[in-house]
Amino acid sequence: MNATQRAIKRAFDFISAFLGLIILSPLFLIIYIMLKRQKNGPAIFSQERIGYRGKPFTIYKFRTLSKAEDKPQLVAKCDDSNSTKTERFLREHHLDELPQLWNVLIGDMSLVGPRPERKYYIDQIMEIDNSYVLIYEMRPGLTSEATLYNGYTDSMEKMLKRLQMDIHYLENRSLALDFSIIMRTAASIISGKKF
């Protein structure tokens, strides 16, 4: 991807995130109210992740797994028994990730790119495969080919598989590929299924 394509990608990210935040604001409000009624804690969850050029940033999402999200452990599955039906629905359809449109808007993330990871897991991945450093060449994404394939990464095996798919994306990225991933992501969100 050359400099012009990167500039187009960033402009598309900014405009899409801006419009998405406005258009989806009623949905944000509904989800926020539903989560606040179910939990005593905050409806919005924030966590430090590692992004472009290895710099840390704060990622945002709707809180759906209060116990798992606050601890350095593998993410819980969508059918986690501690979750309510609402929380499981949000995770199955990846609606818990929507607040990351703000991360896209301010430039911490892109619509398409490798999912950002916690340093805790990056250190473990690097012990097995140090090619993870290649991921720092891209802004992390709201969605990716690996996300469509793996869904949530709830094991180290999936994390390593995601790494290989992210490197494949790095080597082949283009605006056309990004558009394809966005369309498949939209279909996945609607159906709740992986593609």
Rank of each mutant, 00 (worst) to 15 (best):
G151V: 05
L27A: 12
K161T: 01
E92F: 01
E92Q: 14
I189A: 08
M109L: 13
P116L: 08
E137G: 03
K9F: 06
L170C: 12
P72I: 09
I44Y: 07
M34W: 11
Y149V: 14
A43P: 08
E69Q: 14
D166W: 00
S110V: 02
I135W: 02
K71V: 15
D96V: 03
H94A: 12
D123R: 09
N2H: 01
E137Y: 08
I135R: 15
P140K: 01
I44L: 15
D96I: 02
I125C: 02
Q5I: 01
S144V: 04
I122C: 14
K71N: 12
S110Q: 11
K71R: 13
L21K: 08
N130G: 03
R88G: 12
L111G: 04
C78N: 14
I190D: 05
L105S: 00
S131D: 12
G51A: 04
A76T: 14
V104W: 11
S191Q: 06
K71E: 15
H93T: 12
P56G: 02
L148E: 04
S81T: 13
E48V: 12
Y32N: 13
N172Y: 11
S110P: 04
I135Y: 00
Y169I: 09
E171Q: 13
S66C: 11
G54C: 03
P26L: 10
M138D: 07
N103Y: 03
Y132Q: 01
N130H: 10
E97T: 06
I15N: 00
S155R: 11
T84Y: 14
Y169T: 10
I167E: 11
I189E: 04
G20P: 02
R115I: 08
L90K: 10
H93L: 06
T153D: 13
M183L: 15
F57Q: 12
F62H: 11
N2P: 05
K36C: 07
K158F: 00
D166H: 00
L134A: 10
I33A: 09
E48W: 06
A7I: 14
S174D: 12
R184S: 02
P116G: 07
R6D: 09
I189D: 11
H168F: 09
R53M: 08
L170H: 04
I190R: 01
A68I: 06
Y132W: 03
M159S: 03
F57T: 10
L175F: 05
H94C: 11
M34T: 04
K85V: 03
K194E: 01
L105V: 00
K67I: 07
M156D: 02
V75G: 03
M1A: 11
I106T: 08
I189K: 06
R118W: 12
N150H: 04
N103K: 00
T147I: 06
T86Y: 10
I15T: 10
F12D: 02
A146Q: 09
R49G: 00
M156K: 01
T185R: 05
I106N: 07
L24H: 05
I59F: 05
A146H: 04
R63L: 13
A68W: 04
L74S: 01
S25G: 08
I22D: 10
I23K: 07
T153A: 15
S131M: 06
Q164L: 00
K119H: 08
T86W: 14
F28K: 09
T185I: 05
M165T: 04
L101G: 13
